[in-house]
Amino acid sequence: MSGARATATPRLGPQRPPGPPLPAAGPAWSADPYADALRAGRGPLFLRRTDGWLLPLDVERWCAEPDPADLEVLARCEGTVLDVGCGPGRLVAALGGRALGVDVSEAAVAQTVRRGGRALRASVFDPLPGTGRWDTALLMDGNVGIGGDPHALLARLARLLTADGLLLVETAPYPDVDERLTVQLTAPHGTPGAPFPWARLGTPALLHHAHASGWRVRDRWASHTRTFVALRPPRHAP
């Protein structure tokens, strides 16, 4: 991919001193509706808000090969890449050995490995290999919502990346979206998964949180109805 640096994949080893306690991973994304959809390669699958509102999830795109918008993101990746919430691994597999996927879903990790990628079943808030040594991190497919606390997620990623690392974020395609939610994964005629916190951020909301945390904006763009932001970590990451 263009822009790649000749760096080695981070290995297990000494890590930076731990910061404040971080949100723990929940079991929600390992619930049956999500696993069943990934195994089938298709939906329908939804995030269901407590008031009954449904957000469709694009399982078919996640399980397909990278599309043109994905390829543009992959071309921007630098060096070693941590794909946070990698799902079934289309991006990890495309990046090859310089990438590691992280996902709390056993089914997602298994799909990633079957596609030839490397993946670890864990939350981004768990101890991870290569802390402080990843060149690029990805938050695609709405994963900026992980944990329901954008500030905590950005702080965690600042600790995972190198001082001059790169964070590539896919934002909600609606500029005014800035929501903290409690949601469940659900499919028609199925039992919903356990409730968990989530967030939805359009580009303005993400930029607001990024600026407040000291992140530096490198770029923002739209591709095939999807919207993205590239960020550099704070100068003095925790």
Rank of each mutant, 00 (worst) to 15 (best):
R11P: 00
G79V: 04
V177P: 01
R180W: 00
E65S: 14
H189T: 02
M140F: 08
V73I: 14
P66G: 07
F125C: 14
D219C: 03
V109A: 07
T136M: 12
P14N: 09
G101Q: 13
P21F: 03
D58P: 12
P195D: 00
R16L: 14
T136L: 13
R118S: 15
L47K: 02
A163N: 06
R235V: 03
V104P: 12
G79S: 07
A212C: 05
D219N: 11
G202F: 10
W215N: 01
F196S: 06
T203C: 06
R76L: 10
T112H: 13
W29A: 12
G190H: 15
P88L: 03
P233I: 01
A4S: 12
V104W: 00
W62L: 15
P234W: 11
I146W: 05
G79C: 05
A93S: 15
R16V: 12
V113H: 03
P192V: 06
L57V: 09
F125E: 14
L55Y: 08
L201N: 08
D176A: 13
T112C: 15
R226Q: 04
T227P: 00
D70M: 07
P129H: 12
L139C: 09
F228V: 01
E179R: 13
P150G: 03
G26K: 08
D36M: 05
A24L: 13
P14W: 13
V144P: 08
V113A: 10
T162Q: 13
W62R: 14
S213P: 01
E65R: 15
D36Q: 14
V229W: 01
E72W: 06
A28D: 01
L12F: 10
L157C: 05
R156V: 02
R114T: 11
D135A: 15
A8M: 05
A155K: 00
P56S: 12
G202M: 09
P68Y: 03
A4R: 10
W53T: 15
D67I: 02
A237M: 01
F196T: 11
A163G: 11
P129N: 10
G117N: 04
L12A: 14
H209I: 02
G79K: 02
G52D: 04
P175E: 14
T50M: 00
L100Q: 13
H211M: 02
L95M: 09
P18E: 06
A230T: 00
A237K: 00
L185A: 00
P27S: 13
F125L: 12
T9G: 03
Y34F: 15
R39E: 14
R39I: 11
P150S: 07
R42C: 10
G116H: 10
A108C: 11
P127L: 07
A119Y: 07
P14I: 08
L166M: 06
H209F: 07
G202P: 10
R121P: 02
A69N: 09
P127T: 05
